[in-house]
Design a protein around this nucleic acid. Structure first.
Lengths: 151, 151
DNA sequence: GCAAATTTGTTACATTTGTGACCATTGATT
DNA sequence: AATCAATGGTCACAAATGTAACAAATTTGC
């Protein structure tokens, strides 16, 4: 009596969405305390903030498409971050539907801090996992997205 | 003037939580339509359901620890799946706090269907990504969780 | 130039999730 | 045995998200 072959039977432990979700959530939660406890941000807020810190001023739509966030999520995160005075909006004179969003001076300062924490976290994980495997993970995440696009 | 080195500057595109989240969400959403549109299930329900289909009867706590779901999430998913008559609960005579949860006959039938869809999806992704890379992803997801545990 | 279609962003409402309190039961300490 | 702590599960309330409708600005097609 042989073991059930994984190739013609559903097996959760080899099911890509499940495995990825588990790993991703485990990793995300381990970083969460930094933006959450230390800065009182939600995951969405942190993601919007990081986009702006990384790439500079852009419109809400651009934030959303770059980080894969629905426009309502972006809208709400922008509102909250604005209240915190970490970003401000400017009307776009070319297309008055847009608003250009950019970090304030204080927002940039906060981003330098948080970016530093993120860098430290990343380096730590790179050590723990091994640099080759870490880089392999990054490469594979890109390839995964390309693969899904071909579905 | 050289490019900013990735090793001493925060860079979103190499930030593990971000990259993993993007890939994981992209993959999850591409499978979502199957349990969602076709079966009207939420992600949490599907995850609880898959645990039970895969591993058989167990307590709510076991479901949660196996799939990394908070007990309230499990509790609510179990309630919904029970209404749908896909699972039922039995009191545990050894420890009357527990309830043993198991799929019903109809639940098992549904799981065979959904499992088949999942298998097909997984095989498709394996082809698209390449078997080696696919297997590599699965291996790395496990190693990632171990790495986080050492944090 | 103008009506219809599209895009940007916000809002209201419904659904889902997070958090803490809670009850019932079991285990541990004495 | 009596008390106290720990565990399994549910509930109520708050916070976050998804969805659809919307107004305002722009683009398209005629």
């Amino acid at each position: 009596m042989r073991k059930i072959p994984s190739n013609d039977t559903f097996n959760l432990e080899e099911f890509l969405p499940f495995c990825l979700h588990q790993a991703s959530e485990t990793v995300s939660q381990s970083f969460r305390t930094i933006y959450r406890s230390d800065y009182g941000m939600t995951r969405t807020e942190w993601r919007v903030f990081a986009q702006l810190g990384q790439y500079g001023a852009m419109t809400a739509t651009q934030v959303g498409s770059s980080a894969n966030l629905h426009k309502t999520k972006v809208s709400r995160a922008v509102f909250t971050l604005e209240k915190r005075r970490w970003l401000k909006r400017q009307p776009d004179t070319d297309d008055r539907r847009n608003q250009i969003i950019a970090l304030t001076t204080e927002g940039k300062r906060a981003f330098r801090e948080l970016g530093q924490r993120g860098l430290t976290y990343n380096q730590r994980m790179r050590e723990l996992l091994g640099k080759d495997r870490f880089d392999e993970v990054l490469r594979l995440t890109r390839e995964l997205e390309e693969a899904v696009a071909k579905l």
